[in-house]
Simulated scan of single mutants.
Amino acid sequence: MTLLSILLQVDTALNTAAAAAPPAPEKISLFNLLMEGGALMIPLLLCSGIMVYVFVERLMVIRKASAIDPTLMVRIQQAVATGDTSGALAACRNNATPAARVLEKGISRLGKPVDQIERSMENTGRLEVYKLEKNVSVLSTIAGIAPIFGFLGTIAGMIILFFNVQHQGFSLETIAGGIYTKMVTSAAGLIIGLLSYVGYAYLNAQINKAVHGIEATSVEFLDSIQQTNH
C-alpha cells in the first residue's frame, strides 16, 4: 500500500502540473511523454545512463587493446635472435597492449621449456581477456531488467488509472489518455533493453576479435622460439 500511495502522489503531482500548464497544440512531445511515464522512469533513465557509459568506456578500452603494432613481432624476433632480451622486453612495455603483455610474459620465461612458456602466456592471456570483459555483463543485466521496469511502470499506471476511475467516475478520454501515457514506460524499457542487448553483442564480437589477435601473436612467438631452438 505504501508503494501505491507513493505512485498515486507522483501521478497526482504530474497530472496537476500538466493541468496547470497553458494549453498547447495537439502533438506528441518526447519530453512530455517521458514525464507522463511516472516515477518508474527514473530507474529507466539511470539504466540508460549506465548503458551509455559502460558501452563507450568498454569500446574505447577494447579498441585500444586491439591496436597491435604490426612491427612489434618483428622487433621482438630480432631482439630474441640476437639475445637482446632486455630490448625485447622494452619493446613490449612501450606497446602497452594485452598482446604485448602476453609476449612480455613469454620473453621473461625464455630459457625454460617451451610448454612452461606457453602455460605462462596462456595464464596471462586469461587475465587480459578478463580485463577486456570487465563490466560488459552490466549491459546484459540492463537488457534483462529494463523491460521489467517498463512493464512494472505500465502495471502501476494501470492500477492508478482504475483506482481513479473507481473513485472519480468513468471518462473515455481519461481512460484513453491514461492508457497511452502509461505505456510509455513499457516502450522506454523495451528500447533500452534492445539497445543494451545490441551493445552487449557488439562488444563481445570485438572482444573475440581482440582475443584472436592475442592468440595469433602468441602462436607466432612460440613458433619463432621453437625455430630458434632448433
Rank of each mutant, 00 (worst) to 15 (best):
F163K: 09
E173P: 01
A156P: 02
N164M: 06
L127Q: 09
T181P: 00
F162C: 02
K182G: 04
A143E: 09
V165L: 13
P147A: 14
I142E: 06
F170I: 11
R119Y: 08
K112P: 00
V138H: 12
M158T: 03
M121D: 03
I192V: 15
I191L: 13
H167I: 08
I155R: 05
L172K: 10
G193N: 13
Q116C: 06
I148F: 15
Q168R: 10
G178S: 03
I179N: 02
I192D: 09
A188K: 03
A176M: 10
G178R: 12
T185V: 11
F151C: 04
A156D: 02
F163T: 05
F149D: 04
I145P: 04
Q116K: 09
L132C: 02
F149V: 12
A188M: 10
T181C: 03
I159G: 09
L161Y: 02
G178Q: 06
Q166D: 04
E122M: 07
V165S: 00
Q168M: 10
L132P: 01
Y180E: 07
V114Y: 03
R109W: 05
Q116Y: 07
A156M: 13
A187G: 08
T174G: 13
T124S: 09
T185C: 14
G157F: 07
I175H: 00
G169I: 02
G189M: 08
K134N: 08
G153C: 07
Q166I: 00
R119D: 13
S171Y: 04
T174Q: 09
Y180V: 14
I160S: 08
G125V: 02
D115L: 08
N135D: 15
Y130C: 05
L110N: 04
K112W: 01
K182Q: 11
F163R: 03
L152D: 05
I191R: 02
G189C: 14
A176L: 08
V184P: 01
G178C: 05
Y180A: 06
T174S: 07
S137T: 15
K131C: 03
K182C: 05
E173N: 15
Q168V: 01
Y130P: 00
G111C: 08
L152G: 06
G169R: 05
V138A: 15
Q166Y: 06
T174C: 00
V138T: 15
S140Y: 08
V114C: 01
F149L: 14
L127T: 01
E128V: 04
N135W: 12
V129L: 12
I179R: 03
Y130Q: 12
K131Y: 01
I145L: 15
M121T: 06
M158H: 01
V184G: 02
V165E: 07
H167P: 00
Y130E: 14
G150Q: 10
G125N: 04
Y180D: 07
N123I: 14
V114W: 01
F149G: 04
R109Y: 03
I142C: 09
I191F: 12
